[in-house]
């Protein structure tokens, strides 16, 4: 509070640099989006506006391949996000609602460490693990791997939410003859819903977008959308890739935004009740 805010605009060169970064980040995405509406087989020469490549994605020669990959991606993401969310809820409850126990801070670090481990390392390690225990690469290995790396992403919003809920509500429930489990189910869980939804959506999109780990642990015959796109690109970039990438981008943005707003929305409601109690 005491320190005066630094006004970045007074540093010469910062503003252009910011614009440059934003440009480098978003220009490729914008170009891909624009050219996905290009009525031309070339990926660089603009012809005219059309939905030709979107039509091609859904009904063209490669459509069955992409459709199968999309179905795989979505079912895997659903299973991974659901399982990861359940594990994350249990982990958060254990971490934040069971008093002190030995190795608490170590567990906290362990849950979140995967966020910092280079993904390629996780990918290699997972592959080695599966072959060591004799799992054949395939649909199941992808699901298992996704569940695992989605856990920290589901955990973060859920734990943040749970931290914001005072114990006193559960104590009130127990005081009113609820068992600990009833207090959890009837009071804590409903209050955590925004966090849980937010965690689920985040886990879902992380799973949907994943390429590196999936590429390592998937079997030969099975593709998810990102690996299918990668496979197609290796045979030359066609504009239908731009269309499908744009679709994936839109889905991702929608989910991330949803996750953010759902998490925020609940917080606001909670703030209102708690501050009101304090003020009056």
């Amino acid at each position: 509070m005491a320190s005066k805010k630094v006004d970045l605009r007074r540093f010469p060169g910062f503003l252009p640099l910011t614009y440059l970064c934003l440009f480098l980040l978003y220009a490729p995405l914008v170009i891909v989006m624009i050219y996905s509406f290009n009525d031309s087989a070339s990926i660089t020469r603009w012809d005219s506006l059309s939905l030709r490549w979107y039509h091609d994605v859904f009904f063209g020669v490669e459509a069955p391949k992409f459709r199968a990959a999309t179905i795989n991606s979505i079912t895997i993401a659903l299973m991974a996000a659901t399982s990861a969310t359940i594990v994350a809820i249990m982990a958060a409850t254990a971490m934040l609602r069971s008093g002190r126990f030995r190795g608490k801070s170590a567990s906290f670090a362990l849950i979140n460490l995967p966020l910092m481990v280079p993904e390629i390392v996780t990918a290699v390690a997972t592959l080695i693990f599966f072959s060591a225990i004799g799992f054949t690469a395939g649909y199941l290995t992808i699901v298992l791997a996704h569940i695992v790396f989605c856990i920290p992403f589901a955990y973060l919003p859920i734990a943040a939410r749970m931290q914001g809920i005072e114990d006193v509500y559960e104590q009130a429930a127990q005081d009113l003859y609820a068992t600990r489990f009833q207090a959890f189910r009837l009071v804590l869980l409903p209050l955590m819903t925004p966090g849980i939804l937010s965690g689920f959506l985040l886990a879902f999109i992380i799973s949907l977008d994943d390429f590196i780990i999936t590429n390592f642990v998937k079997g030969a015959g099975i593709e998810t959308l990102p690996t299918a796109i990668y496979g197609a690109v290796r045979q030359g970039i066609k504009p239908n890739i731009m269309a499908i990438s744009t679709l994936l981008l839109v889905v991702s943005v929608v989910f991330v935004a949803l996750s953010y707003f759902v998490g925020r929305m609940g917080e606001k409601n909670n703030d209102e009740t708690s501050t009101k109690g304090d003020l009056i």
């Binding site: 005072e166 509500y169 009130a172 127990q174 005081d175 609820a178 009740t273």
Partner: peptide, 20 residues
């Protein structure tokens, strides 16, 4: 006894009404 096994009820200082 656990809190839910005791026939006493509490009015909490912060009220702790279930917000949902």
């Amino acid at each position: 006894l656990l809190p839910n096994e005791r026939p006493v009820n509490t009015v909490f200082q912060q009220y702790a009404l279930f917000p949902h």
